[in-house]
């Protein structure tokens, strides 16, 4: 039985796992964006917070993923459903590139532009939304791209705690020493990562300011 044959025969199951995977990556990325970008904006404007926030995000990044899933398992509401837990863990990993790139992007805005904007009488809010964020957008997006690609890969490991996704095929294949099963999980995951990388990369180039 070759791989294409297998995929054709099990397309509904593979599709379901693919959608689970997509949901975990999408939800966790959204959560990371909601937390990470404001944190990045904050540390770009209050440098005193810079070190502790980046250090925190860095430490999270050093925890092995399997261990992090394990740490979070006993947490009450979170541990009830593996998928919930996986989304939070993935979001935590996605924080660092988002915070760091938002910070770098905003700090990278030409100081003369910021000074001119202030001197012209823009409010701090207008400065942020009309000047700083638009000018930082391509750098922020490149952080998002890194976060998404990491998440797609890490989400396969979430199957180990029963969160589903394409990792389930990989783990099952490993247990049964069945290469086709492994590939049936790995290839769609790799394709997803490539498509996300390419799509966000394209958007990033479009937003880059000459």
């Amino acid at each position: 039985m070759n791989l294409l044959h297998f995929l054709a025969e099990n397309r509904m199951q593979v599709l379901e796992l693919f959608l689970e995977h997509l949901w975990m990556v999408g939800a966790s990325t959204l959560l990371a964006v909601i937390i990470g970008i404001p944190l990045g904006i904050m540390i770009a404007h209050w440098p005193a917070w810079n070190k502790p926030v980046l250090a925190g995000a860095n430490i999270i990044q050093t925890i092995p993923s399997l261990a992090l899933f394990g740490f979070l398992l006993p947490v009450p509401w979170l541990g009830d459903r593996a998928e919930r837990l996986a989304i939070l863990a993935l979001a935590l990993y996605a924080l660092l590139p988002l915070i760091r790139n938002t910070y770098t992007g905003i700090r990278g805005v030409d100081p003369a532009v910021v000074e001119a904007a202030r001197g012209m009488g823009l409010t701090e809010r207008q400065l942020l939304f009309k000047v700083e964020l638009p000018l930082a957008s391509s750098v922020i997006l490149s952080g998002l791209r890194i976060a998404v690609v990491i998440s797609v890969g890490l989400a396969t490991i979430a199957a180990a705690i029963g969160a589903g996704g394409l990792g389930e095929l990989i783990f099952r294949g490993l247990a049964m020493v069945n290469n086709q099963l492994i590939l049936a999980g790995a290839i769609p995951a790799a394709a997803l990562a490539l498509v996300a990388d390419f799509g966000l990369g394209w958007l990033e180039r479009r937003l880059r300011h000459r």
Partner: peptide, 20 residues
């Protein structure tokens, strides 16, 4: 303060035009 700044034109050497 904002009203004051909007009533004062400000030109600097680096110009500081908004590149976007």
């Amino acid at each position: 303060l904002l009203r004051l700044r909007r009533r004062i034109g400000y030109v600097i050497q680096e110009v500081g035009l908004f590149p976007h």
